[in-house]
Structures are given as structure tokens and as C-alpha cells.
């Protein structure tokens, strides 16, 4: 689904979201309150400039509109794979975005992430995955890295990885696997997107419960138990 159709379905004419250099920014009127909309589109690679543009929007929201909920719209092919961005400290710029989102949370902004198209690794970590809750549309795609690059890094045969990516939930791309592992809280029904957003806002503002969700849903059985063991170890 494209972002215009998504926002039209949520707010009709009640939004002023604009796109500049594949970065989305604006305000959405929903259930009688304003939400800040911040994100990316067209599978944008996230480099230093796009990380800073999103961080600017988050910091402006914190400064000018205390408490206004934030909707982070995720559509990215991952971090920008360029030497210039590495030299300029892409990791620092992306971490800055993540810290800005975290600051907003601590100052009382409810933060909902939504993967409405595609999410990959680095571009996803410091936006949607830093939200209070991260949701997705059923047809969205979530993955860490494409298989040829994965085969090169792990030195495992690409055919074996392709085989695994069909049915192994900790490895295979796909929103259902992320739901089972607790990384995605819920999927929104395309027939009732407003209900999805309403539920996400209601669930936000709570401590991180992704490991608990992963255990309860059976997709990530060890994380919550290991964290608990560390917290209580003699």
C-alpha cells in the first residue's frame, strides 16, 4: 500500500503530510487529535541525510508539540550502502534518530511504528523498532539482508539459505514471523486501518514486552527466559 492511500484511509483529507527526498513529514488528524507523521517512502535507503531529516522532525515535535503522538511510517531498503555515508558516521546519525525517538517516548509521546511496505535491518532498527509498539500491514516485507549478501558474509551456501528462508521463522523474511517473535505487535487489517491505529495507540506507552510476546506466541522461546535469568542470577 502506498502512503497516500494509507493516510487517506486513516484521515481522508485530514492530513498535510508531504514528501521531500523520500522523507515523509506532516500531521494527521485522527480521532479528534493531531498525530505527527514521520517516515520514508519508495524503499528509501537511509543515509546520514535521511536519518537527520527524520530526527529533525522528531525533535521539532518534542519541542513544539509536547505529548503529541508520533506515527513512524517505515518503508526502507535498509541503510545507505555508500562509502561517503560510512565516512560521515552513518551509524552515529542513525543512533541519533533512535535516541530522538527514545527521548520523545520518555517525555510522554506515544509512538507507533508501522511497516506499511518494506523494512530492512539498519533502516528499521532506529525507527519502527524504537517505537513503543511496531505494527505492520499484512502484505509488508521485513528482512535483515538479501540472500546473496548473507551467503557472502556467513560463507554458507546460498541454496541452503534459500531452503531455510522458506520455513525457518528465525531466518525467513516475512511479517508473520516477526509477529510470532514479538518484533511486530500486530498486523492491521487493510479493511479497517483506523481500528489498527486505534489499537496501536492504546497499546503504546508501556515497557518493552517484545521478548514476552515472542515467548507467548512461540516464535522466540528463549529471549524472555534468558533476560529473566540474568536479572535474577546470584
Amino acid at each position: 500500500m502506498n502512503w497516500q492511500a494509507l493516510l487517506d484511509a486513516l484521515a481522508g483529507p485530514g492530513h498535510d503530510v508531504q514528501v521531500e527526498d523520500e522523507v515523509l513529514r506532516g500531521t494527521l488528524r485522527f480521532d479528534g487529535q493531531d498525530l505527527a507523521v514521520i517516515g520514508t517512502t519508495d524503499h528509501a535507503p537511509i543515509g546520514v541525510a535521511r536519518a537527520l531529516a527524520q530526527a529533525r522532525a522528531v525533535l521539532d515535535t518534542v519541542r513544539d508539540h509536547p505529548g503529541r503522538p508520533i506515527l513512524l511510517l517505515v518503508d526502507t531498503q535498509g541503510q545507505q550502502l555508500r562509502r561517503r555515508d560510512e565516512m560521515l558516521g552513518i551509524h552515529r546519525a542513525m543512533a541519533h534518530l533512535g535516541k530522538a525517538v527514545d527521548l520523545a517516548r520518555r517525555r510522554g509521546h506515544r509512538i507507533v511504528g508501522l511497516v506499511y511496505d518494506q523494512a530492512l535491518s539498519g533502516g528499521f532498527l532506529t525507527s519502527g523498532l524504537m517505537a513503543d509498539v511496531c505494527d505492520a500491514l499484512p502484505e509488508a516485507e521485513i528482512r535483515v539482508m538479501r540472500l546473496p549478501a548473507m551467503a557472502r558474509v556467513t560463507k554458507l551456501p546460498e541454496e541452503r539459505l534459500a531452503e531455510l528462508s522458506r520455513d525457518n521463522p528465525v531466518f525467513a523474511p516475512g511479517v508473520d514471523n516477526y509477529v510470532a517473535m514479538g518484533g511486530v505487535r500486530a498486523l492491521w487489517s487493510p479493511q479497517n486501518l483506523a481500528a489498527g491505529l486505534r489499537a496501536a495507540l492504546a497499546a503504546s506507552g508501556q515497557p518493552d514486552r517484545r521478548a514476552l510476546d515472542g515467548a507467548e506466541r512461540g516464535g522466540r522461546k528463549l529471549a524472555a527466559e534468558v533476560m529473566q535469568r540474568v536479572r535474577s542470577a546470584a
Binding site: 535491518s121 517473535m181 517484545r210 529471549a223
Partner: peptide, 9 residues
């Protein structure tokens, strides 16, 4: 990458 999804979360 061997357990990519779980590692990302």
C-alpha cells in the same frame, strides 16, 4: 545472520 530475525529484534 544465521538467526537474522531474532538477532535484529
Amino acid at each position: 545472520l544465521h538467526e537474522a530475525n531474532a538477532g535484529l529484534i
